[in-house]
Design a protein around this nucleic acid. Sequence first.
DNA 1: CTATTATTGATTAACCCTGACCTTTAAGTT
DNA 2: AACTTAAAGGTCAGGGTTAATCAATAATAG
Lengths: 166, 166
Amino acid sequence: MNEVFIMSNLTRVIEQYINELFDAGSEESSVSLRRKEVAASFGCVPSQINYVLRKCFTPEKGYLVESQRGEHGYIRIVRLSYENSEERVKHVEEIVGDSLSEQSCKKLLVNLQERGLIKARERLIIEVALRHIDDLGRSEFDLSPYKRSVIQAEMLKRVLRSLVLA
Amino acid sequence: MNEVFIMSNLTRVIEQYINELFDAGSEESSVSLRRKEVAASFGCVPSQINYVLRKCFTPEKGYLVESQRGEHGYIRIVRLSYENSEERVKHVEEIVGDSLSEQSCKKLLVNLQERGLIKARERLIIEVALRHIDDLGRSEFDLSPYKRSVIQAEMLKRVLRSLVLA
DNA sequence: CTATTATTGATTAACCCTGACCTTTAAGTT
DNA sequence: AACTTAAAGGTCAGGGTTAATCAATAATAG
C-alpha cells in the first residue's frame, strides 16, 4: 500500500484521539470529554473541537453529540448502533435525501465503506450504475442536472435499502 | 504514424505516470497525489488532472477516486481490478449481447455467482440497479420493452466490465 | 471539413483553523 | 430567594488553501 500517513492535520489527529477513546471503552458506546482540556492538550482553540465534531462525528456517520455548558460542562459523543434493519433503512434514506450531487454521493459511499456497511467492489458497482444512469439521462434524454440527481438518489436509495435489509 | 515517438499527449503522459505509481505486483493498491504538485511538475493547469482521472481512472476500469480539498488536500486513487484485459471484456460483451431480457439477465447473474465470479450481495446490487433502470424506462419515459432491454444490457456490460471476470 | 478529444482559465465549493462574541450552568453572596 | 460571577460550551464570520466544475478554445483524428 502507498500509505504515507500525514498526521500534520489537527482535525484528523483529534478525530483519531476520540476514536481511540471509543476503542478503550470496549463495549461502551459513548465517550465524554471536556472541550477546554482536549483543546489545551492539542494546543488549539476550543472551537476546533466543535469543528471536529461537526465534521467527523455527524449523524451521517452514525454519531450523536450532547453537551452541557457552565460549570461541570462536558461533551458526550454517542455512537449509534442499529438494533433492527428498519432503523438502518430509515437512517440511510434520511442521509440520501431526495437528490444528491455527485460529490456528496461519493462521500456517502466512502462513509458507508469506512463503516463497513459496503465493500469496495460493491461501491464500484454502485458507482458504475449511477454513472450509467447519469450518462443516459444526459445524452439520451437530455435531462437537467437536477432531474438526474433526483433519479440517482432514487436508485441509490433503492440499492442501499436492499443491501441494508439483506 | 508511429506513436512511440509522439509524446505530446499530456493526458497519456500523466496517465502513465499515475500507473507507474501503482504497485505493479499487487492487484489491489492505491496511490495518493497532490493535484497542484502533479500539475506543476507537468507544467499544466490543475484541472488537467481531473480530466485525466475522469478519462482514464473510471469505475468502469476498476478505479475509485476519493479526494479532499483545503489544506492537506489530496487525491487518492484506488485500483480494485488490475488485469482487465481486452479478451475478458470481449468475453463479457459476447455473453451479454446487445440486448437482454430480464430472464436471461437473471440467468447470467446466477451463473456468474455459481462460478464464484460475483458474490450474492454484488448480484443483489446489480439486480436492483437493473430493475430500477427498467422501471424508470417504462414509467417515466415510456420506452419499448426492446429499448429497455438494450439499456439494461449496456448497463450490465458496463458493470461487469468493471469487475474482474476470470 | 467535421467531430471528438485535449487543454486552459475563471469561478465555485470544500476544508482547516482561529478568535471574537454569545449562552448556559452552577456556585457563591447578600 | 434573588443576584452576581466565573466557568464552561456554542456560534459565526473570515482568511488561507486546495480541489471540482464548466464553458470556451485549441488540437487532433476520421
